[in-house]
Write a protein that binds this DNA or RNA. Structure first.
Lengths: 134, 134
DNA sequence: CTTGACTCTGGACTATGGTCCAGACTGCAG
DNA sequence: CTGCAGTCTGGACCATAGTCCAGAGTCAAG
């Protein structure tokens, strides 16, 4: 271990090989060391970084966030990381609120719709069709 | 009214001209009638359809949903429309649940993070870095 | 008839996060 | 040494929902 080809690294991190190269191209991963042949070589630190990225994604961070506030060089900057997490939380809360608004609308319409009969009796169609849907 | 150019139609429906043409290209709108010059002409029904599409989008339907279950030919099929609305509700609820899971994780980490000091004392960084984050 | 606004077309481009491909080269086991 | 698996590169492509552009043609007011 700790001297991995790109295939082994990808497998251990649970990502595709192309994803590793994509991350390198997009500065999420530092350029890998190379063998004389040009083959990339990785150690434990790259594996950790890759797992770091995956966990950050699972917390709702975009790759752009990870490139920026959560970048390699900032992994030790606690204050910046906390601010990034707070900003992301605000963002997530707004998305939840928006989806809840949509859910409420759908629930209201579904409850009121008999599921058969004339289109004019279907509140879903009416809501979509009328000038002032409610 | 009821004999509109694409510009008037777009303005009344509150969308961009390019969006109207995009919808036509993608079968969300039937091919428009044409003048001898090739200019598209629209009436009230197209305006209604366009507004229908916009409202459906606001309820979380994708253009693919609108092309399918909410297509022009199905606007009168109450049972199908209700099923589509129910499926969309389920979808929205799953997205909400996922975001709530993420929100919970972020809140826990933010609350526990002092916002300064050693990186090792920052639960956000620990969660992202460690093998078994919690 | 001129002028400016409107419209036409096909195709390129945006952001996001990758995925896939061809053609060439390398590493390693037998 | 052969052969197969692994890797290299640059670039094309996916979905989503449009947006923008150039170059050409058209409509309507004055």
């Amino acid at each position: 271990m700790s001297n991995l080809g790109i295939g082994q690294l990808a497998k251990r991190a649970g990502v595709a090989i192309d994803t590793v190269r994509y991350y390198e191209r997009n500065q999420l991963l530092a350029p890998a060391g190379r063998l004389a042949s040009g083959y990339r070589r990785y150690g434990e630190s790259e594996l950790k970084r890759l797992r770091f990225i995956r966990r950050a994604e699972a917390l709702g961070f975009t790759l752009e966030d990870i490139r920026g506030p959560l970048s390699l060089s900032d992994e030790r900057n606690v204050a910046k990381v906390k601010r990034a997490a707070e900003a992301k939380l605000t963002d997530i809360e707004q998305r939840i609120a928006e989806l809840q608004r949509i859910r409420k609308g759908l629930r209201t319409l579904i409850t009121a719709c008999p599921g058969h009969g004339r289109a004019e009796a279907c509140p879903i169609l009416n809501a979509l069709t009328q000038e002032n849907p409610r």
